[in-house]
Design a protein around this nucleic acid. Structure first.
Length: 481
RNA sequence: GGCCCCGUCGCCAAGUGGUAAGGCACGGCUCUGCAAAAGCUGCACCGGCGGUUCAAAUCCGCCCGGGGCCUCCA
C-alpha cells in the first residue's frame, strides 16, 4: 500500500513518488501578516500539519517550509491607518500568528522564511526572467509577460483569451497585456522599498514564494500547498515565474484544501462572517477544533457551527474516556511482549485510509472502531485475569496513541483533558464545582439512608440543569450533558 | 458569461462500478436501588428523471437545489 495524492495540476489522484526517494520537500503559503488569523487559516495550517506529520509517520524525511508574507499592499495600508511602520505591524502579526499556531498544536515547520529577508533572491529571479525575454521593465515596474509563457493557466485550467476579455489595466500600470502581472513595483512615497536594477521598489505578491521555495527546496520540489483560493492567481503565477526562470518543472504535486464555511458560505474577511482563532479557542479546546477539521476530507468544504463543534466534542470525549479506561484497566497487570494481530490490523487500516489522499475522516472511523473494541474487552468479566485480553487492550491503546500522534491528537493526559472539558462545560452552565460536590454529598447521605426519593430528586434537579451524576464502584462522579 | 465543485440516515461524514464505514442523536436489551456510563442490538437503496452495464450512490445526459474561482483571500 502506498500513498496517493490528489494533484490539482491534473485533477486526479496519483501515486506519490518524491523526486528523491525517502525525502519530501514541501512548501505551504503562509499568511500575509496584517491581521489576526481566522478559522479558515486554522484549517489550512492544520491540514498541512497532519500531512507533514503523516509523511514522517510513513517514514519520509520532510523539509517543510512555510513563509511569512511581510511586505504587501494590505500591510502598508493597515500600518498607515495606525500610523506605524509597516515592518512593526508585520512583526506584531508574525508574533500573533506564531502564538495561534502554537495554540493549535502545530508542529513547527523546518523553516519559516520572511519575504523581506529574500530581496536578493527575488531580484535575481526577476533579472533572469528579463534576460530570457519573459518579463519586461516598464516605468519603475517589472511585469511578467504571460504571452511568453505557453504553459500559463495550466494549473487553474483557464483560457487566456477569455480572461483577457474581462481584464482591465489599472491606471498607472504600464502593461503590454492586461493579464501581465507585477514582479516588481516601483516605490511610491512613504512606502517601504529596496534598491534594485529598476530603481527603488518592492516585490509583487507572487514572486516571494518562488524565491523562498526554490531557495530552500531547490528549483524542483515535491509538494506545494495552500487554500483552494490560491490556485488562481497566486499559484498559477508562481509556476509561471519559477518555470519561466529555470526552464524546469517547479512543483510535482499541488495540494489545495477546501474552505471553512459558515451557513454554507465561505468564511472570509469581505463577508465579515469570520471567527478568529483566538476567539474560538476561548470557547473550544484546540484539540476539538483539530478533531472537527479532521472529521471531513481536507478538500471538502466544512461548515463551521456550534452544533458541529459540540458533536466533535462528544466524539473526542468518547475517545479520551476510552483511553483513560483502558489505561486504568491494564494498570498493574503483567506486561507481555506477545504480538497483537488486531492492533496491527488497525494500524494497517489507518495507513490505508491516510494513504488514500489523507482520508482523515475514514481514519477517525477506524479509531472509533478500535475504541469500541477496547471498551468491549474491558467490560468482559474478570478482564484483568485474562492475559490475552489485557495484551490486546494494551496493544490497541498503544496503537491509537501512535496513530493519534500522526494526526496531532490524543497528546493530552486523558484525565486532565476530560476534567478541563467538564469544568469548561460546567462554567458555561453557570454552576460551581462546589455546588455539584455539595449536592453529591447530600445524595450520598440520602442513598445511605435508603431515601431513594430524595436521592432521585437531587439527581433529577441536577439533570434538569445539565449535570449528570454517575454512580460507580468508587463513588459518585459527575459530567455535563 | 467562462471554468469548477457539491447534493449519502434527524444532524455531521466516509465510500466513486459489485450491492451503503464511523460519529452525534434516537429505540430495545444487559448492567444499576432507579439511572448514567459502557457493551450488545435496531435504524438509509444514496436530490429527481432517463441512459450505459450482468451489475451504479459510484459512469453518461438532462433537470432541480447549494457553493466556489474568475479582484485581495487559507
Amino acid at each position: 500500500m502506498s500513498l496517493r495524492v490528489y494533484n490539482t495540476l491534473n485533477g486526479r489522484k496519483e501515486p506519490f513518488e518524491p523526486i528523491e526517494p525517502g525525502k519530501v520537500g514541501m512548501y505551504v503559503c503562509g499568511v500575509t501578516v496584517y491581521d489576526y488569523c481566522h478559522v479558515g487559516h486554522a484549517r489550512a495550517n492544520i491540514v498541512f500539519d497532519i500531512i507533514y506529520r503523516y509523511l514522517r509517520y510513513a517514514g519520509y524525511e520532510v523539509n517543510y517550509v512555510r513563509n511569512y508574507t511581510d511586505v504587501d499592499d494590505k500591510i502598508i495600508a493597515r500600518a498607515n491607518e495606525r500610523g506605524i511602520d509597516s515592518q512593526e505591524l508585520a512583526e506584531q502579526f508574525i508574533r500573533a500568528f506564531d502564538e495561534d499556531m502554537a495554540a493549535l498544536g502545530l508542529d513547527l515547520p523546518s523553516c519559516q522564511p520572511k519575504a523581506t529577508e529574500h530581496m536578493a533572491e527575488i531580484i535575481a529571479i526577476v533579472e533572469k526572467l528579463i534576460e530570457r525575454g519573459i518579463a519586461y521593465p516598464s516605468g519603475g515596474d517589472v511585469y511578467f509577460s504571460v504571452e511568453q509563457f505557453p504553459d500559463y493557466l495550466k494549473l487553474s485550467g483557464r483560457n487566456l483569451e477569455e480572461m483577457q476579455a474581462g481584464a482591465r489595466i489599472a491606471p498607472g500600470e504600464l502593461k503590454r497585456n492586461p493579464m501581465d502581472f507585477a514582479l516588481w513595483k516601483a516605490a511610491k512615497p512613504g512606502e517601504p522599498s529596496w534598491d534594485s536594477p529598476w530603481g527603488a521598489g518592492r516585490p509583487g505578491w507572487h514572486i516571494e514564494c518562488s524565491a523562498m521555495s526554490m531557495k530552500y527546496l531547490g528549483e524542483s520540489f515535491d509538494i506545494h500547498g495552500g487554500g483552494k483560493d490560491l490556485i488562481f492567481p497566486h499559484h498559477e503565477n508562481e509556476i509561471a515565474q519559477s518555470e519561466g526562470a529555470t526552464g524546469k518543472p517547479f512543483v510535482k504535486y499541488w495540494l489545495h484544501n477546501g474552505f471553512v464555511n459558515v451557513n454554507q458560505e465561505k468564511m472570509s474577511k469581505s463577508l465579515g462572517n469570520f471567527f478568529t482563532i483566538r476567539d474560538i479557542l476561548k470557547t473550544y479546546d484546540s484539540e476539538i477544533l483539530r478533531f472537527f477539521i479532521l472529521s471531513a476530507h481536507y478538500r471538502s468544504p466544512i461548515d463551521f457551527s456550534d452544533q458541529n463543534l459540540d458533536e466533535a466534542t462528544s466524539g473526542l470525549e468518547r475517545i479520551y474516556e476510552a483511553l483513560e479506561a483502558a489505561a486504568q484497566a491494564v494498570e498493574g497487570c503483567p506486561e507481555s511482549t506477545e504480538p497483537c494481530p488486531e492492533a496491527d490490523a488497525f494500524k494497517a487500516r489507518f495507513a490505508e485510509a491516510m494513504d488514500d489522499d489523507f482520508n482523515t475522516a475514514l481514519a477517525l472511523g477506524h479509531i472509533f472502531d478500535a475504541v469500541r473494541t477496547m471498551n468491549r474487552l474491558i467490560a468482559e468479566k474478570k478482564f484483568r485475569k485474562k492475559a490475552s485480553l489485557v495484551t490486546e487492550v494494551r496493544a490497541l491503546h498503544a496503537a491509537v496513541m501512535q496513530v493519534g500522534d500522526a494526526l496531532g491528537l490524543f497528546g493530552s493526559d486523558p484525565a486532565a483533558w476530560l476534567e478541563k472539558q467538564r469544568l469548561i462545560a460546567l462554567d458555561k452552565l453557570g454552576i460551581s464545582v462546589a455546588e455539584v460536590q455539595e449536592q453529591i454529598e447530600r445524595r450520598v447521605q440520602a442513598r445511605a439512608d435508603k431515601d431513594f426519593a430524595l436521592s432521585d430528586q437531587i439527581r433529577d434537579e441536577l439533570d434538569a440543569r445539565g449535570v449528570i451524576l454517575l454512580d460507580g464502584p468508587q463513588g459518585t462522579n459527575w459530567k455535563v450533558k
